[in-house]
């Protein structure tokens, strides 16, 4: 076979992979977000309220104290459980980010004019964020417990949420309309969440 054939084979292979991937429903559409048309009331994020406990659970001082007072087996279990807590916390952060990004997409989808540069920029920034998020997650999973990363992620999400809260308030008037739109099966499933 010629080089041309392999060239087109590679292109078709890439297109096929993208096609199959695009047909799959995104994980963020899992039925976890409550009523589909609900607008979140607490956009500043529930994660903030849990942050002190998470920080305490992962603090080296706390771990040092425990290591002097409990047997090794219990200490190992404690470390494992705390890591699970940190991972669950990170998953919650990610879910919150997804929810907020979906709001941004709703605004884009329901706007009569969309600027390509803005959309591309957002996609790149989101990819960047997600990459860093994964690094943090891997770090926690490996047992490094990077508290500063958790703090920063939380700060970032808070800032993002606060700004969007204002946006959502503006959209409030149209919530009923959008709810009606998404509830009809022949229309679309974008939710202002």
């Amino acid at each position: 076979m010629s080089l041309t054939f392999y060239f087109f084979l590679a292109i078709i292979g890439i297109l096929f992979v993208l096609f199959v991937w695009s047909l799959q429903s995104p994980k963020r559409q899992a039925p976890s977000a409550g009523p589909p048309s609900a607008i979140p009331q607490d956009l500043q994020g529930s994660h903030i309220s849990h942050l002190p406990q998470i920080r305490r659970a992962l603090a080296p001082a706390d771990f040092e104290f425990a290591s002097k007072n409990i047997p090794r087996e219990a200490l190992r279990r404690m470390r494992r459980e705390r890591r699970q807590v940190a991972l669950a916390y990170l998953s919650a952060l990610r879910a919150e980010l997804d929810k907020l990004l979906r709001t941004a997409r709703v605004i884009a989808a329901l706007s009569p004019e969309v600027v390509a540069g803005q959309e591309v920029e957002r996609a790149l920034l989101t990819a960047n964020f997600l990459w860093r998020y994964r690094m943090t997650r891997m770090s926690v999973w490996a047992g490094f417990t990077p508290l500063p990363q958790l703090n920063h992620l939380s700060d970032m999400l808070s800032a993002y949420s606060i700004h969007l809260e204002e946006a959502i308030r503006e959209l409030g008037e149209r919530a009923a309309l959008v709810t009606e739109m998404v509830s009809s099966p022949d229309r679309r499933r974008i939710h202002p969440v």
Binding site: A108, L110, E113, V114, L171
Partner: peptide
């Protein structure tokens, strides 16, 4: 579909 005003996106 009823759309949002342009300035929302901008």
């Amino acid at each position: 579909l009823p759309l949002l005003p342009k300035d929302h996106y901008r």
